[in-house]
Simulated assay, not measured.
Amino acid sequence: MIRIALFALLALGLFPPASVQAQSLTEIRTQLQATLQRSLSRSMMEGALPHLDLMTGKLTRFYPTENHEIILRIADVYVMCATLVDDDGTEATVDYYMTHNGSGYSLIRTEINNRAPLLALMKSGKAIRLE
């Protein structure tokens, strides 16, 4: 009976995979930060993160200024946030979505100035603070 209940919770995404469960918060944070740094290094051009606004067609160069300490979890997806600044000094929020890939983590989505979906997930209780 207990096995069935645990399997059901895993199937619903209420527990992370066993490999993630065994990790401490510090280990997860360190691995997520390393993944983010590697991904950003590959994406950055001349020290800036280029971003194409699909509504306006405008290409903006963003520069990282501050990483936020909070990490959120949505089932098996982790969200790290940061503040960016463009060439004019205008700040933008960025949310990086990462998931466990078996041997580490992978960046699967980046949202710049699109916080409403994440806030809705937080409000519904689907995105929780990793503590």
Rank of each mutant, 00 (worst) to 15 (best):
M98R: 04
T90W: 03
S43C: 03
R3Q: 07
Q23V: 00
V79R: 10
L14T: 09
S19T: 07
L118K: 02
M122R: 15
H51R: 06
G57W: 13
S19E: 15
V79L: 11
L118A: 02
G13C: 04
R61P: 02
S19N: 06
S24K: 01
L10N: 12
K58S: 03
L130N: 03
S39M: 04
Q23C: 00
M122T: 10
T83A: 04
D86R: 10
T60F: 01
L84R: 02
P50V: 06
Y78M: 03
M98K: 03
L12R: 05
L72K: 02
L130F: 09
K126E: 14
A5D: 06
L59P: 00
E91D: 12
I71F: 09
R73N: 05
L119E: 07
Q33S: 11
V79A: 11
T99Y: 02
P50K: 12
A5C: 03
L10E: 07
G102Q: 07
P117Q: 08
T35Q: 10
L59V: 14
L6I: 13
T83V: 06
F7S: 12
G47L: 08
R109K: 10
T56G: 10
T110V: 14
L59C: 05
R129M: 01
N67C: 00
I4F: 11
Q21E: 08
G13V: 01
A92G: 06
G125F: 04
L52M: 14
T65A: 04
G57V: 10
S19K: 11
P16G: 11
M44R: 05
L6W: 12
R3H: 09
S39T: 14
F15W: 11
L40F: 14
L49R: 07
A18L: 12
S106P: 00
A48M: 04
Y105M: 04
R115P: 00
A82K: 03
F62Q: 03
I74G: 07
G104E: 07
A34Q: 14
L72F: 15
G102P: 04
F15H: 02
A22L: 07
L6V: 12
F15Y: 06
K58L: 07
S24F: 07
T110R: 13
R61M: 09
I28K: 01
L14R: 07
L72W: 15
T90A: 14
R129P: 00
D76W: 14
T65H: 09
I128T: 05
D95Q: 13
L119H: 00
M98T: 06
L59Q: 14
S41M: 04
T35H: 06
